[in-house]
Amino acid sequence: MKLRRSMLFLPGANAAMLSTAFVYKPDSIMFDLEDAVSLREKDSARILVFNALQLPVYREIETVVRINPLNTPFGHLDLEAAVRAGVDVVRLPKTDSAEDVEVLEREVERIERACGREIGSTKLMAAIESASGVINALAIAKASPRLIGIALAGFDYVMDMQTERGDGTELFYARCAVLHAARAAKIDAFDVVWSDLNDEAGFLKEVDLIKRLGFNGKSLINPRQIELLHNAYAPTEEEVEYAGRVVTAAAEGERKGLGVVSLNGKMIDGPVIDHARRVLQRAEASGTRK
């Protein structure tokens, strides 16, 4: 159970950010070769990310590379660089159908064979950025066992929907659809980026919403947002205390070989125990909410 609350975007062409981003300790770091990189620097960003991924510090943190779509002149080269450099996860932008994921998976496997990397060790993630993608979300989420999650990308999606970013109403259906697809496929779900760095209150409000909806986390564009997000996802002391008792009771039940686990005379089942474990994991990562 990998904790994925924060996924920090880094422009792939920026040497300074690539050299220092690990110090902010997001749950995952995403090197962007797509929208954050100008056409002129597509080649240099690819090579810079290829080299950065081999830094020892990036073996201790989950790394993601957002490649360009495979129907551009850059996509296949990006994929080649990312898989060969040993990235943990490849993020595919503009995923409209399960077929997009299948094509990606075949390519990843070909490269894994070519470079001698363990088949299946490159995980995938699909970003949904269109009405078609949202409608096909379940098929996309189930398209490959390599998928660790799907993400909603708001900027392209609202344009496809002929609307614009506002209070979140415009993303309501898409968030619910993506989230349900992810949960049904038992993979993670990530929410859109919050781009107004000066509006901290707005950011926290959105984080509160997506946490209550059930998202695992969010894509971030500024390291300042990491601590705010982690704190918002951190459980309260009461929650930690209760979760601790649930997990202890479950361990006790298992030790005694009991089929049923109970706490204070009430029966607790699998989902409750899973939830308690997630609470403790978040508390271990970031303490209790301040």
Partner: peptide, 28 residues
């Protein structure tokens, strides 16, 4: 950092050699 030095030298050489294909094993 060394990784950035490598990356920039590799990129400049590839641009200056007008390389069409990349030998990834030479880069790692």
């Amino acid at each position: 950092l060394d990784c950035a030095i490598r990356a920039r030298v590799q990129t400049a050489v590839m641009r200056g050699a007008e390389a069409q294909t990349i030998d990834w094993s030479a880069l790692s």
